[in-house]
């Protein structure tokens, strides 16, 4: 889902850069106010954690493989603004170190996999725990739904950006991306649920962290 350079037109690049810069700027302000510089090492290590977790590939049909996105997990554990910051750092590093996602497309990638994924995941998770209570069942169901939605929505936004840029026709790229990622989202959901159930079993206190 990392968009490389050359696929987006300048209008889309400019719009997504402005929106992402605003979002990340807001995240920096809020994290600074609520945490000070206190938890910076922790967030750095968690960004490295997302990065390392993304290295665990699993096979999908036909020789391709997928990997964990992690935005939902970060948002559930630390809150949406912290997740936005962590995901942005992961995406910047992936762009600069692995050329995974372009430099001009960075705004779009941060928008899709940072802002959209984190916020949708966080509020869907909250909705589930509010409806079902903060029980084990509520947490796991919420985690699954949040992770699925984060991947699905991020891919829809990614497809819309590509279509608006004239890179691929709307009627092809949106259903194709959404369809594929509806399946990948199930895998993301299953992994997130497994992670959450492990954390619940071993260090349940980590699910009660201050969320920002």
């Amino acid at each position: 889902m990392h968009i490389p350079d050359g696929l987006l037109n300048v209008a889309t690049v400019a719009t997504t850069y402005v929106v992402s810069a605003g979002g990340v700027g807001g995240a920096v302000r809020i994290v600074n106010k609520k945490l000070g510089e206190k938890q910076v090492p922790l967030m750095g290590i968690l960004a490295a954690f997302i990065f390392a977790a993304q290295m665990l590939n699993f096979p999908i049909a036909g020789g391709t493989s997928g990997h964990f996105l992690g935005a939902a997990l970060a948002a559930i554990l630390l809150g949406p603004w912290a997740a936005v910051l962590i995901m942005s750092c992961v995406l910047i590093a992936q762009c600069l170190i692995f050329q995974d996602g372009g430099l001009l497309a960075l705004g779009a990638n941060i928008f899709n996999m940072g802002l959209v994924a984190s916020f949708s995941a966080y509020y869907i998770y909250r909705l589930f725990t509010w409806l079902m209570g903060s029980t084990r069942k509520g947490t796991l169901a919420g985690g699954f739904a949040a992770a699925w939605a984060s991947v699905f929505l991020a891919s829809v936004f990614c497809a819309v950006e590509l279509a608006v840029s004239g890179t691929s026709p709307f009627g092809v790229v949106v259903p194709a991306m959404a369809g594929v990622h509806a399946l990948i989202g199930i895998i993301e959901g299953l992994i997130t649920t497994a992670v959450l159930s492990l954390v619940l079993a071993t260090r349940a206190d980590l699910l009660q962290l201050q969320r920002i």
Binding site: L42, L73, L190, A194, L198, T202, L206
Partner: peptide
């Protein structure tokens, strides 16, 4: 997938604890 979930969960807890120590 369950195995990978457990690995990522373990990795998360270890990373978090390492972050606290750091």
């Amino acid at each position: 997938l369950g195995t990978i979930g457990n690995m990522i969960g373990t990795l998360f807890i270890r990373s978090y604890e390492r972050g606290e120590r750091v």
